[in-house]
């Protein structure tokens, strides 16, 4: 980051941006594919016991793509948001588990 290495630094940044762009495009395409796949499953004549879990799985993967690639959670300094998100998911999961197993059976 010193001033005399500015040019090499810029080149490094450029390369990094390019890679970043690539990742974003790839995940964008993947998300479109997933969405089409989900729709296709619903339209086609597959059993719903197969369709529902697959759609849920696709949804989870899409959320992960969204968070990590578009909202930059894969980058540095995002440990705290990650901790919050996973903490919240854990609490919500425990609550739902409680309702489905011991309270309202």
């Amino acid at each position: 980051m010193a001033k005399d290495t500015n040019s090499t630094h810029n080149e490094f940044e450029k390369a990094e941006h390019k890679q970043e762009m690539q990742h974003q495009v790839i995940s964008f395409v993947m998300m479109i594919i997933f969405t089409i796949a989900a729709f296709a499953l619903v339209v086609s004549d597959v059993s719903k016991y197969f369709t529902i879990p697959i759609i849920l799985l696709l949804a989870v993967v899409q959320v992960v793509f969204q968070l990590y690639y578009f909202m930059h959670m894969k980058n540095k300094d995002h440990e705290m948001p990650a901790l919050m998100i996973y903490g919240g998911i854990a609490v919500a999961f425990m609550t739902i588990l409680t309702f489905t197993t011991i309270i309202w059976w």
């Binding site: 609550t95 011991i102 309270i103």
Partner: peptide, 18 residues
């Protein structure tokens, strides 16, 4: 603190397990 809320509801008939 998030795992204990139902102790306010012991008498609502949640059952012995809960």
């Amino acid at each position: 603190g998030f795992m204990v809320w139902a102790h306010h509801m012991f008498t609502t008939g949640m059952g012995p397990v809960a």
